[in-house]
Design a protein around this nucleic acid. Sequence first.
DNA 1: ACCCATTGCTTGGCCAGCCAAGGTAATCTG
DNA 2: CAGATTACCTTGGCTGGCCAAGCAATGGGT
Lengths: 169, 169
Amino acid sequence: MSGTDPVCTETAPSAAHGGPVSVALARVARMHRIAAGRRLRELGLYPGQEMMMMRLWDCGPVRQSELIQSLGLDASTVTKMLQRMEHCGLVLRRPDPADRRAVLVEATDEGRSLRVGVEGVWSDLEQASLSGLGPDDRAELERLLGVVADNLREEAGEAGECPAPPRGC
Amino acid sequence: MSGTDPVCTETAPSAAHGGPVSVALARVARMHRIAAGRRLRELGLYPGQEMMMMRLWDCGPVRQSELIQSLGLDASTVTKMLQRMEHCGLVLRRPDPADRRAVLVEATDEGRSLRVGVEGVWSDLEQASLSGLGPDDRAELERLLGVVADNLREEAGEAGECPAPPRGC
DNA sequence: ACCCATTGCTTGGCCAGCCAAGGTAATCTG
DNA sequence: CAGATTACCTTGGCTGGCCAAGCAATGGGT
């Protein structure tokens, strides 16, 4: 703060003086991920898998390529994650008859059964994170995060929506 | 957005309706990390290592345990990261003569030489992320993130400061 | 009809990060 | 002073996540 102490009195590293918001964002993001991980563990999920399941709950049988697109993840990441989740019985994969390259992914009953739990985790996480913030503050935070997301979207890939719903999607 | 379409028209998964801010935060965090990773790669750093280096630049020779504390990471994570960074010549490790359990860590000259580059990366990232936001919006975002960090701090570990500067720290 | 670019997915390799378990050294306690 | 506890670090094992390289199927161009 003040005084002659040259360094290391602040929580933010001095080399990051050019990006205080980025520092705060990185810290919050890690904490948030940890907090989510703790809650998800009790459901038998690892962090990141909850987003996959949400996508599957919304979309029904989907092509893996669409999951990659909508989650904004690398193809290999999705492949491996789905392999593990299939092995755990959360997910079902089968070749797409219309395109023998593609793989259709679908939540199993066991996977669907997690929905309530995940929704609870997510709500609880929201409540824990935003404690002490009124509705207007929350809306403002959401708005500002949206702006940042738009700024980073072009250079850091996309986490968009389901592009072309062929049927139930 | 409107109409009878039941699902999967929104960018946010419907199962996450209970936590819109958490969804936004998770998305922004991943984009932000990717954007940071792209920039850091050109410096020869992996994401996460820049924070380590910042700490070392600020603190000089530090105990590994203090790094663990200030970065809020797991001890094993720090051990392995430092082993790799030492092998790359960014960092120097030696046993603490005052406590033979402890390890003192210090940036090498090569490690110190990255400081300018990392500062540039961080500033550039800040600028890219916050484009379109005025000073008041930025301050507001920082404030709100601070509140969230405080909320999550107790349950998700700490990323605090250098606790007891023995000398140069 | 054929060749080639594109798309979709997989594999291998690497790093960040977590937990659990273990080993050594310092410190607290009886 | 000896034994128990605590602090510090390391190792192994697992997942998320990335990139690069590779393979198979589709589709477009000539």
